[in-house]
Amino acid sequence: MTGDQPGPPQTRRGLLGALLDRFGHLIRELSKFATVGGLAFLVDFALFNYLASVRHVPPVVAKTVSTVVAATLAFLGNRFWTWRHRQRSHPAREYALFFFFNAVGLGIAVGCLAISRYGLGAIWPGVFQTALADNVASFIVGTGLGTLFRFWSYRRFVFLEPGTPSVPGTSHDRESGA
């Protein structure tokens, strides 16, 4: 029993080590992406609420403006920190794709806000046409869904791995499984 059976700590360490070897790069990228996204989120949240509450800009317009400003910050953070180790393609290509995918993410967030405020708000105005409902729909639901989409799309199409074709739609297999 002394040397024949691997103990649970050794097995766990081996499994954890294997998982970190396999997915460590993805965990690091996701952590950096989350940090950049968190800062952009704070800018988005503060600017949206300032525009909507203090400046009395309509909520959908305020969300659009705050997202564009936050997206600019996110592009810089992701290009020069999160995925700085990835190959660089033409900056205009990266910028255009980044903002295209941000527009889709913005559409997700604005869509959630519009469904809440104008769809559900038409049925229950006292519940869904409030600042709290706007923030929940926009920042929790919309930003959550948009963030999942953005991480996948930036990683897949914008900030490429070495050897990845830069033309979207070309087929290639990644052996990393990510």
Rank of each mutant, 00 (worst) to 15 (best):
M1L: 11
T2C: 08
Q5T: 14
P8D: 09
A18I: 06
L19P: 00
L20F: 12
F23G: 01
F23L: 10
H25Y: 07
H25E: 15
I27H: 04
R28W: 10
R28N: 09
R28Q: 06
E29D: 12
L30C: 06
S31E: 02
S31Y: 02
K32S: 10
K32I: 01
F33A: 03
T35L: 15
G37L: 08
A40N: 07
A40S: 15
A40K: 04
F41W: 10
L42E: 04
F45C: 04
L47P: 00
F48N: 03
N49S: 07
L51P: 07
A52K: 13
S53H: 14
H56Q: 12
V57L: 10
P58T: 01
P58K: 02
V60F: 07
V61F: 09
K63Y: 07
K63H: 10
K63E: 09
K63V: 12
V65L: 11
S66D: 06
T67D: 00
V68Q: 10
A71N: 03
T72M: 12
A74V: 07
F75N: 03
F75Y: 14
L76I: 13
G77W: 02
R84H: 11
R86T: 00
Q87I: 12
Q87Y: 00
Q87D: 09
S89G: 15
S89V: 12
R93G: 01
E94H: 03
A96C: 08
L97C: 00
F98T: 03
F100E: 00
F100R: 00
N102W: 09
L106C: 04
I108F: 06
A109R: 05
C112Y: 01
R117W: 02
R117T: 13
Y118N: 09
L120V: 07
A122C: 09
A122M: 14
G126K: 08
F128W: 08
Q129H: 08
A131Q: 14
A131F: 12
V136I: 15
I140Y: 05
G142I: 03
T143I: 11
G146R: 02
T147E: 02
T147Q: 07
F149T: 07
F151G: 00
F151D: 01
W152S: 10
S153M: 11
S153H: 03
Y154T: 05
R155H: 11
R156P: 08
F157P: 01
V158A: 06
G163R: 06
P165Y: 11
V167M: 08
P168F: 07
G169P: 06
G169A: 04
S171H: 14
H172M: 10
H172W: 15
D173V: 14
R174I: 05
E175L: 13
A178I: 12
A178C: 03
